[in-house]
Design a protein around this nucleic acid. Structure first.
Lengths: 386, 386
DNA sequence: TTCTGGACTTGAAACGTTTGAATAGTGTAG
DNA sequence: CTACACTATTCAAACGTTTCAAGTCCAGAA
């Protein structure tokens, strides 16, 4: 018996296609396929028949129609400032992990560090009726206009990588101050006294607290940093420009007459740039100069020497933020309890091979050759499993 | 005058909210806000009023309702095998670039290299009524069952990074054979004769053609590769495991008595692992041994020495695939012209600092750039530690 | 006065689902 | 024979849009 095909407007198999094939009503089929409680009362044979037909036809329920009807999309919008930045990837993974058990789906949008894309992306997310929004924005994120719209539509929002609690947005980020101090302390404890610092660009939120932390740690240790050895990256255009910045600044600093035995870089890409710059000037890392980064992104782990760095728990940040958002969604009716202070996660020192005691200056410190002096407990360099 | 708020079931501002606020019908508001041709006939003042109100209330059209009605979602599903692999990121960027001008939206799903996620992700994409699907799968991708469903629903599909034309799926990938040859030729032209090769894992599609290309190039140059210097990576569990694989294989090869002056690695992460392994055995790159990778992912560019590699035009692959898909969507009615042979893109040699002529055997080649501990040329030396 | 016709606005159906209420069919008890 | 309680299935309304056909005005023409 040939099933009459009414005009197919779209290529998709619909509920009524299945119903027609089964000689049943749409309702019946829906009840069975959506596992509604009523389906228990249906004849087992019918259920079987429906399932088989659906499978045969390759039926997939239309999420649009379904969500329209049930007014729940099970979707969370994720707005990443730039997926090309290795920073974002682990955060997104963490979010995914948080979402999965709750059967939520992530709507990932990449703003590609373009101001205008930011607003339009947020618009997309709103239009797609995400029930909540997670913004990943360690990077510039000039107060998108649409943030107000998000509120108007009562969509809870959280942010990862930046403190926006002043605007009553729950924020999850690493404790940059502690991280800066941690990096500085590591260098100091290795014996470095002449430490160069490459601060982040001024327009970047993280720059200030990291620098403050480093300064604080230096002061604690009774160390005065030479202002001529403190430089800043220029404001960035794209997330990977830190590499060139670090490389050039390192070379400039060497050209100046100031001496230093270690460089504390703003982030990993900058640090890798420094390593390159030092190398180009004929200096070995870590024998002649130590370098420490910040973030612990993949390239830090797989370069040689492995880069000593301060690790941000990116994955955890992502999943904690997600957790928080999901909880807010539960108590949707009550005003979402917007935390008034940021959730700061502890950074972790990852010692690899780019840091070592300073070269012996006067005293004859035996063989500054290939021996990578084991600094601290010397964790084995593994790629970050974020 | 207070606008009476009927019970808000969802937090979202809807068309009828705006209509009520304007004292107009839903139709009118819809016509204006969706820029329908009819809106030209409406009083300018009315239009103005509607726009203002919509803006004030923070109205965003419901993509679900809209798509349901218009039966077009303007969405393309993108299924990436693993976003943690730096390989995927540029491809996705390329896709994004292709999609944007056509006003299409990407629905990005990350399968996280988990077999079961693959099918369920494809299901998600189907349910969200993507009009087409792009699969990024250089990585294992064991013939998802749902691929059949994609066809049943008449959703065009293309694949990036793997040849699936035998299953009549348009495929976009780099010319692996040419790439393998290119890498080999580079090493040969530098003067290397004893070249070690680390092949990819057997379960990975790219492995075979790259190896064949390398072999072919060697044969062309009258070079016989020592079988004992040809090893394979173990089958992988996660995308970054190539690093450890390369590192261990490099150390093993050095431990064996075979000599070599260059390593042709399957991909960049493997190559970076090799660099690490060589270094741990006291060898300098490129002075004692050259290393070449494949892919040109970010870590290859920012490590020191910069990794010489064969670049895949990932971004281009992404945008070409998108182009092709969009064209197929245009002529939706006619059978999508599934190409019968893969579109192979030319790789590009990127020469950085990890490749150089082989060390002079007897003569004293004083490497000018060599700041590394002088460890005997080309043969094993004392490992720095452990 | 009624008609014509433009200018402006609205009614109602449809998209594919879900779901509470309603219907037919079938025994079984009163 | 009616009433009742099942069981198995269907009706119909709703979700927020879009869009075509059909209003309502009101001025000017017949």
């Amino acid at each position: 018996m040939v099933i009459k095909r009414t005009k197919r407007k779209t290529g998709h198999v619909t509920l009524s296609d299945v119903a027609r094939a089964c000689q049943l009503s749409v309702s019946t089929v829906s009840i069975v396929l959506s596992q509604a409680p009523l389906s228990q009362r249906l004849a087992a044979t019918t259920r079987e028949r429906i399932h088989a037909t659906a499978l045969r036809l390759g039926y997939h329920p239309d999420a649009y129609a379904r969500s329209l009807r049930s007014r729940s999309t099970k979707t969370v919008g994720v707005l990443a400032y730039d997926m090309s930045d290795p920073f974002c990837v682990p955060v997104v993974r963490g979010i995914e992990e948080g979402l999965q058990p709750a059967d939520y789906f992530s709507l990932l949008v990449d703003a590609q560090t373009e101001r205008k894309l930011f607003d339009s992306s947020l618009g997309m997310i709103l239009e797609r009726r995400a029930e909540g929004v997670i913004v990943i924005a360690s990077w510039v994120f000039e107060e998108a206009n649409l943030l107000a719209d998000v509120k108007k539509n009562h969509v809870p929002i959280v942010i990862v990588g930046r403190d926006l609690t002043e605007r009553r947005i729950p924020s999850f980020l690493v404790d940059n101050h502690a991280g800066g101090a941690m990096a500085m302390n590591h260098l100091i404890s290795l014996g470095h006294r002449r430490i160069a610092v490459i601060r982040g660009p001024d327009d970047l939120f993280d720059s200030q607290p990291r620098w403050a932390g480093a300064q604080h740690a230096a002061a604690q240790a009774g160390l005065r940093l030479d202002p001529r050895l403190v430089v800043s990256l220029p404001n960035r255009v794209d997330p990977t420009s830190g590499f060139d910045g670090g490389r050039l600044l390192a070379r400039e600093m060497i050209s100046s007459t100031r001496e230093f035995t270690a460089v504390l870089a703003f982030d990993d890409l900058t640090a890798l740039g420094v390593v390159r710059g030092l190398r180009e000037e004929g200096l070995r890392v870590p024998e002649d100069c130590s370098v420490i980064g910040f973030d612990d992104i993949l390239p830090a782990a797989v370069s040689t020497p492995g880069l000593t760095t301060v690790r941000q728990p990116l994955r955890t940040m992502g999943s904690l933020a997600t957790q928080h958002l999901l909880e807010a969604l539960q108590q949707s009716s009550q005003e979402s309890v917007s935390a008034t202070n940021p959730r700061m996660l502890a950074p972790e020192l990852v010692v690899r091979d780019s840091s070592a005691p300073p070269p012996a200056r006067r005293r004859d410190r035996s063989a500054p050759t290939s021996q990578h002096p084991a600094a601290g407990p010397a964790r084995r360099a593994k790629p970050p499993r974020q």
